[in-house]
Amino acid sequence: MVDTGLPIRIVLAKLGFDGHDRGLKVVARMLRDAGMEVVYLGLRQTTDSVIKAVEQEDADVVGISMHNAGHLTLGPMIVAALDEAGLDVPVVIGGIVPDVDLPDLEAAGVAAVLGPGAPVDEVVSTVRAVAGLDGPN
């Protein structure tokens, strides 16, 4: 994206039944503290509700948190759904994702994956990078 000087807007959500929201809440506060505008949708979201929020909020990035080993199914699904809706918005996945799954997620168009224990600097710089504000670092 073009650097407009406006803060990055990020939609954060958990899809389906997964109720592990500790990490996502912490990430929400990290990003907010870093000056981003966080749209926290929280639990039990669907691809439709995420897309609606991205459209309404004119979001720059989507962050999906996954702790239930469903990332290989749901990660590609959300990327495809955004694509289908004509939204060119990068998707970051956070949570429990084994390293061996990274190539598959990358191939499916997931922009970045943040694992357990990712420090605040990495979280913030990753979101900035996928939003196109920083060069790759």
Binding site: G16, F17, T73
Partner: peptide, 18 residues
Amino acid sequence: DMPTLMGRDSDHPWSLGE
């Protein structure tokens, strides 16, 4: 699994991937 914990059947749309 999550669908069972949430009281949903395995063929419920939200159960996909779980």
